[in-house]
């Protein structure tokens, strides 16, 4: 093989540069799909919501206490749905928060490397189980076989079982982010605490946990956002009764299970029922996006520190 003449070499460079440019345009376009998707999500929800809000006042939507969109006598107060969503999510966090933080502290600070390597994937599995399966478990096991042992007149569809199962579903979020945060605390700080005569509980609860606090808080916020968006568990085990109630043992309807209910029935394109999907969806997105924004910001702040 002979040497390239300088002219041939230049041509080869030019050609390769052109190919590289073209390739860059292609991969850039692929990357922009995510951004485009976000725009489409926002615009689609907004456009249909605007149609909804030309027929229903925003004030009524946000402050009304009756949600009877699927009945003849229609009321459009979203509070019963919002209330049910917040209640099930709070129950979920009441489960996933303490259990998840405890598990994370145990795995990060106490467990042997082997136990940790074995257990982390097992716990991750909990978020890989399809949510319809949790719905099944809530409806056919948790409520009849477990909860009714303590609470006899518990309704078969109830907020408590839904919240518990969403808690199990979001447990891995709390465990994995909190564990990461605690593992990121420099080992030096633990040594310093021991050298001052600390017992392990002092090291863990006065040094490591406070130092990792922002990560732990972020894990809770992100888990809460995830809990609010969970649909199938609420649709299967929570019932479709849009009532403004604080009784955990009652059937109620979350924002997401309303969306599921509309989908199971018939809501022709352009009707108010159809448009209500988008208004409720938009509200859900605004709340969860705000929570995610806060969570990601807190995580980032903690990443910068160490």
């Amino acid at each position: 093989m002979g040497y390239l003449s300088s002219e041939q070499f230049l041509r080869s460079v030019k050609r390769r540069r052109a190919q590289d440019k073209l390739f860059m345009v292609v991969v850039l376009a692929a990357t922009l799909v995510s951004t485009l998707a976000l725009i489409v999500i926002f615009v689609t929800l907004s456009v249909e919501s605007v149609s909804f809000f030309t027929r229903v006042s925003v004030i009524e939507f946000l402050t009304g206490t009756k949600w009877t969109v699927l009945f003849a006598d229609k009321h459009f107060g979203v509070l019963p749905l919002l209330n049910a969503t917040l209640m099930t999510s709070l129950i979920a966090i009441a489960v996933a928060g303490p259990a998840g933080i405890a598990a994370a502290v145990y795995l990060s600070e106490y467990a042997s490397q082997r136990f940790r390597n074995f257990m982390k994937p097992v716990i991750e599995t909990l978020s890989g189980v399809p949510t319809v399966v949790y719905g099944y478990f809530a409806l056919y096991f948790v409520t009849p076989n477990f909860l009714r042992a303590f609470w006899e007149d518990l309704s078969i569809h109830n907020a408590l079982a839904v919240g518990l199962m969403i808690g199990v579903l979001t447990l891995p979020i709390v465990v994995s982010i909190s564990d990461d945060a605690m593992k990121a605390v420099p080992y030096d700080l633990r040594l310093a605490a021991y050298s001052l005569g600390s017992r392990k509980i002092d090291v863990v609860f006065r040094v490591v946990l406070p130092a990792a606090l922002s990560g732990v808080v972020a894990s809770i916020v992100l888990a809460f956002a995830r809990a609010m968006g969970e649909t199938m568990i609420a649709a299967i085990a929570g019932g479709f009764r849009p009532v403004l109630s604080f009784n955990l043992g009652e059937s109620m309807q979350t924002m997401t299970s309303y969306l599921a209910q509309v989908a199971t029935g018939d809501a022709p394109h352009g009707t108010i029922e159809y448009q209500s999907l988008f208004a409720v969806g938009l509200l859900l997105l605004v709340i969860t996006a705000t929570l995610n924004f806060i969570g990601l910001k807190v995580i980032r702040r903690w990443e910068i520190r160490y």
């Binding site: 976000l38 999500i41 995830r226 997401t256 969860t288 996006a289 924004f293």
Partner: peptide, 24 residues
């Protein structure tokens, strides 16, 4: 910015994808 958008997309509840899929 692009990375942040991807993180945000991951945070959108799956049911919302359904609604947007239906509308769009």
């Amino acid at each position: 910015v692009l990375r942040y958008n991807i993180a945000n997309l991951a945070g959108v509840p799956s049911v919302v994808f359904g609604i947007v899929g239906l509308g769009f």
